[in-house]
């Protein structure tokens, strides 16, 4: 059943278009894929100019909420306060994204937009596992 009280079609679509525009600009201007996990990991292992633009991208992402705050109050973020769970999830996401060569942005947005079957396989896998995980946590445990 659709959760009509939380479903926000307009802002979701506008936000999605902004994310798509960011991916489009990074590709058309820099010739690089906007994959957050690869870019972030690359700030450690790449060198020179390849490192600089990655650091700049991550800095922009981290500072985006500051720019938002100049225009409007920040939207609420409800996140679990269980630090052990956050640490475990962060580790799994880090290992998984690196081993799987991408995350929601690199495979889920850019990969699907390139019509890559490899990214489709990755996206279906992480979406499927995430859905099953939420089902177990919320409805079985």
């Amino acid at each position: 059943m659709i959760d009509w009280t939380h479903f926000t079609p307009e802002s979701a679509l506008v936000g999605g278009l902004m994310i798509g525009l960011a991916c489009a600009l990074l590709w058309l201007l820099n010739g690089r894929i906007a994959g957050i996990s690869g870019i972030t990991a690359g700030t450690f292992i790449s060198a020179g100019t390849e490192r600089n633009w990655r650091q700049a991208f991550v800095l922009g992402l981290v500072l985006s909420s500051w720019l938002w705050l100049m225009m409007a109050p920040l939207p609420v973020a409800e996140v679990t306060g269980n630090y052990g769970l956050l640490a475990a999830a962060g580790l799994l996401v880090g290992i998984g994204a690196r081993l799987g060569s991408g995350c929601t942005s690199g495979h889920g947005v850019c990969g699907l937009a390139r019509l890559s079957m490899r990214s489709l396989a990755a996206t279906l896998t992480f979406m499927g596992v995430a859905v099953v995980t939420v089902f177990i946590v919320r409805h079985l445990l």
């Binding site: 769970l85 962060g90 998984g96 992480f126 596992v129 995430a130 995980t133």
Partner: peptide
């Protein structure tokens, strides 16, 4: 693994 962490 990514999906597991994301879903948690």
């Amino acid at each position: 693994l990514f999906g597991l962490g994301w879903g948690l």
